[in-house]
Write a protein that binds this DNA or RNA. Structure first.
Lengths: 196, 196, 196, 196
DNA sequence: GATGAATGAGCTTTCATTCAT
DNA sequence: TATGAATGAAAGCTCATTCAT
C-alpha cells in the first residue's frame, strides 16, 4: 500500500501532531498511547518505533511548541532596526502568542505542572524562558547604549515583561476574559512607560 | 484502635492533609489513593467513607488551599484604612503568597492544567481569581471616589495586577530566580505608579 | 462470600502453588501472570497484592522448593547416629530427591538457566547447594575423627557427591532412562567405596 | 552495500554467531530478533530470509554447539590406540569441555530448561548425550573384550561418567569453585578405579 | 538478497473502587 | 467506623513476524 522505507520524518511529524491533538482534547496525562495511535490512524507499535517511550514523545511535542513560538517572536522583532521599534514589537509579539499560536499556553500549562517532578522537562522550560528573556535583554541593551534606559532597569524589566506576558496568557486560558484585546494593549503601554 | 464516633472533621482534615502531601511529593496524577492512605496511616477503605471518590478529595484539597490564601490577603489589607495603604498592602500580600504559602502555586499549577477538562475544578479556580480581583476592584473604587484613579483604569489595573502576580509566582516556581525579593519590590513599585 | 481480612498466608500459598503448577505445565518464562491467576481462580490484581512482581513470586516459589528439599535430606540423616549410617542415608536421600520430590529438579533447571542473568536467584541457588554440601562435610568430619576418612578427602568427596547427584537427576529429566533405580544404587556404592 | 548472491553460508553463520552472543549476553528468552539483527549488523528482515523463525534459528545454534563439542571429544580419543589411553583421554576430554568450550554448558543449560516443552529441542539433546555415551560404551567394549572390565559394568559406568561430568560442569557454572582443576583430576581418578 | 516500517496480540503492572467482615 | 482483600479494566510497552520497496 504505502511505502515501507524512509518514512521516518513524515511519521514522526504525524505522531507528534496526533499527540498534540490528544493533549488538547483530553489534557495531559489523560490520553493513552492508544489514543495517539488512533488519532494518527496507526498502530500502537509504530509509535515505539519512532519514540523511545511516551515521555520521549511528550518531550518532542514540547520542543516543537517551543521552537515554533520562539521563532514567531524573533521574526516579529527582526523586522525592525530601531530600539523603540524592536522593543514594542517584542512586547506585541509576546502578548500575541496566545492569538498566533492558540495551543501554546495550554500545552505549556500541562508541562509546567509536571516539571517539578520531571527531570527532562524542567530544563527545557527553563531554557525556553531564558532564551526569550535573554533576547529581550539584548534588545534592551541597545536602549542602554543609547541612554534611553538605565542599566539597572534591564534585568528587572526583562523579568517583569516575561511574567506579565505569562500571567496574562494563563489568565486568558483560565478565565473568560471579555477584554483581552484591551488588556494586551495596556500590557504594551505599561512597559513602554519605562522607555519614555 | 477501636472505631470512634464523631471523628468526621478530624479524619477529613487528616486525609486532606495527606493528599496535599502526596500531591507535593509526587505531583498531580502521580499518586494513588493507597499513597494517600499510607501517608495518613489509614486504610484505603476509610477514605471512601469520608469522600465520594478521588476527584472529590482532590477538589476539597483545592478548596482549602484557596480559602487559606484568600484569607491571608484579606487580613493583610484589613489592617489599613486609607486607600493608599490598602492598595499597597494588597500588592505586597499578593506578591508574598509564594513566600507565606509556599505550596499554593505548586498546587494551583496542578489543578490549572486539569481545569479545561474538569467541570468541577474550572469554576472553582475562576471564582477564586474573581474574588481576589473583585476585592482589589473594591479597593480601587475607593481610589476612584477620591479622584486618585481614573474610573476606566480600575478593571485594567485589577487584571494586570492579578496576571503579573500570577506570572511572577509561576516564574519563581519554574526558574531559579536569584533576585526574587527585588522583583517583588519592583512589582509593587510598578503598579504604585498608577496612583501617583 | 469469602472472608475479607487475614487472608495473607492462605492466599500466598495458593498463589505460589498455582505458579508452581504453571511452571511445570508451561515451563519457566512461558506462562503469564494471567495464567497463574486463572490457575488459582483469582484475579490478576490480587497477585500484586501479595507479591511485589512476577520476579518476586518466582523467587518465593524457588525458596519453597529449596527448603522442602533440604528438610527431606536432613530428616533422613537424622534417623542415624553412626557415621556410616549417616553417610549412606545422605547418599540415598540425595539420590532419591527426584523420586520424593518429582518437580524439584525440573523447577531448579528452569531457575539455573536464568541464574547467570538474575541477581536474586543466583545467590539463592549457591546458598542451597552450599548448605547441602556443608551438611555433608559435617557428616564426613565424623569419619575423619574416627580415622575412617583422610582429612583431604572431605572437600573433594563432598563436591563429587553433589555433582554426581545433580548430574544423575538432570539426566533423568532429560533422557528416558530405563535403569534409574539401578543407577541410584550404583551411585551409592560408588561413593561408599571411599569409606571402606 | 549492494545485495549479493551466494551469501547463504556466510550469512547463516553470521546470524548464528550473533544469536549465540545474544544468548550468552542476555540469557535465553531475554533477547529479541532485533537484538540478534543489531548484533550481526543486519536488518531484522534478512534473518527471516535464512531462518524459518526464531525457534528455527535457536535450534541451529544448539546443533552447532553440539557438533563442536562432540568433535572435540572424538578428536581427543582418536589420538590413542590402547583401551586405557582411550578411556583416560575420554574422561579428560569430557571433564575439560567447560574449559575448551566455555559457553557450551551455559548454552546447554538454557535449552535443557526449555526441552520438556519443546518438541524440537528435546530429541536433539537426547541424541547428543546418547551419541557421547554410546561412544564411551564403544571404548568400554574394548575393555570388556580384554577382560579388564566386567560386561555388566559397561552401561552403568557410561551413565555415571556422563552424569558426573554434567554435574561438575553445572556446578562450575553455578558456584564459585576454587578447586576446579583438582576436582577434574579427582573425577578422572574416581572412574579410573573401575579399570584397575 | 536486503531493508526497516508496520502490525497487533499479549505481556506486566497499576489503581479506583467495592464490600464482607 | 475501619479494615484490607479483591476486582478487572486499562495503561505502557515488547516483539515475532510480514511485506512493499
Amino acid at each position: 500500500m504505502s511505502p515501507k522505507v524512509g518514512m521516518e520524518p513524515l511519521r514522526r511529524q504525524q505522531i507528534i501532531l496526533a499527540a498534540k491533538d490528544c493533549m488538547l482534547q483530553y489534557g495531559f496525562g489523560h490520553f493513552s498511547i492508544k489514543d495517539v495511535a488512533e488519532s494518527a490512524t496507526l498502530s500502537t507499535g509504530v509509535i515505539y518505533h519512532y519514540f523511545k517511550n511516551k515521555q520521549d514523545l511528550l518531550v518532542q511535542v514540547l520542543k516543537e511548541s517551543f521552537s515554533d513560538t520562539e521563532e514567531t517572536v524573533r521574526e516579529a522583532v527582526e523586522k525592525h532596526t530601531a530600539f523603540e521599534g524592536k522593543f514594542k514589537s517584542y512586547l506585541e509579539a509576546v502578548a500575541d502568542v496566545p492569538k498566533q499560536n492558540p495551543d501554546f499556553y495550554l500545552i505549556l500549562l500541562n508541562y509546567i505542572a509536571q516539571s517539578p517532578y520531571n527531570e527532562e522537562v524542567q530544563p527545557l522550560i527553563t531554557k525556553f524562558f531564558d532564551h526569550l528573556r535573554t533576547f529581550l535583554e539584548e534588545i534592551l541593551e541597545e536602549g542602554v547604549e543609547q541612554d534611553i534606559l538605565h542599566p539597572e532597569t534591564k534585568p528587572v524589566l526583562s523579568h517583569l515583561v516575561m511574567s506579565q506576558a505569562m500571567g496574562l496568557a494563563f489568565q486568558e486560558q483560565l478565565l473568560p476574559l471579555d477584554n483581552v484585546e484591551y488588556l494586551r494593549e495596556e500590557f504594551v503601554r505599561l512597559f513602554q512607560k519605562y522607555i519614555e
